[in-house]
């Protein structure tokens, strides 16, 4: 995948943090044309609404389909055609169906270019925690989260940067049970976009805040594109 790097970290000031739709649009902007992409359940699904009509992006859904179209409505609804969130969807020209072992071989085998996932926490080395809060009374349920985190060539995460209580979700080490180790390469949040590499965390853009303000609120070392 080729991504043209922004020349310098951009602070978008004079505005608030990104709204959910705006965040989805920012993720969609960074998905290379013609990619095979898996969008996780929930907010990541909305990224599809922001892909340009000529993007050539082919959506994979892990329950066994490539070429997934938008959500089905009215007469289009077919109980045999659902996405990974079990929502009725449609098929696009060029679609294909396959069984679960093939679907996950596609993923684990490194054939999916990008997956977009939600998260409870991401660590500064790219560890992902998104399947279990660790609460003793919670029923564990992992679905395809670990397979996606481990298998996709590029794992993008979209989440809010802080919890409702103001606790950072980008952390030195995840305290929630892990989904995958050092797997997240890009982190898209309402307040900033980050790149995560073995060298650490680089701020690409901020929204309604500055790198300095974020550095004061996060317990993670931040670089900027200008630090190269």
């Amino acid at each position: 995948m080729t991504v043209v790097p922004l020349p310098t970290t951009v602070e978008h000031l004079g505005r608030g943090p990104l709204g959910r739709d705006e965040l989805a649009a920012v993720v969609a902007r960074d998905i290379p044309r013609g990619s095979f992409v898996n969008l996780g359940i929930g907010q990541p699904t909305t990224v599809a609404d922001h892909l340009p009509a000529d993007s050539g992006v082919v959506l994979h859904t892990e329950n066994g389909m490539l070429g997934m179209g938008p959500a089905a409505h009215g007469d289009e609804i077919d109980p045999d055609l659902v996405n990974a969130g079990k929502i009725p969807v449609t098929e696009l020209p060029g679609a294909s169906y396959f069984h679960q072992a093939d679907s996950f071989a596609m993923m684990r085998g490194g054939h999916i270019d990008v997956c977009v996932l939600g998260a409870f926490q991401v660590s500064e080395r790219g560890d992902l925690a998104n399947w279990h809060t660790g609460a003793s009374d919670a029923i564990p349920a992992v679905g395809g989260a670990m397979d996606l985190a481990t298998g996709a060539k590029n794992v993008f995460v979209m989440m809010t940067l802080f919890t409702k209580e103001g606790t950072p979700k980008l952390v030195p080490r995840c305290t929630y049970p892990l989904t995958g180790l050092a797997c997240v390469s890009r982190l898209y949040t309402d307040q900033a976009v980050f790149r995560i590499t073995p060298d650490g965390v680089t701020v690409v853009e901020t929204y309604g805040t500055t790198v300095q303000e974020l550095a004061a609120r996060l317990d993670v070392g931040l670089r900027t594109l200008d630090d190269r």
Binding site: E62, Q100, A101, S103, F104, T150
Partner: peptide
């Protein structure tokens, strides 16, 4: 994990004794 669940059954059907999987 969903993919491991599928692959463990695939392995049973294909006569594979066990396999090394990166997931998890």
């Amino acid at each position: 994990p969903q993919g491991t669940l599928a692959e463990r059954m695939r392995a049973a059907g294909a006569g594979i004794g066990a396999f090394y999987c990166p997931t998890g």
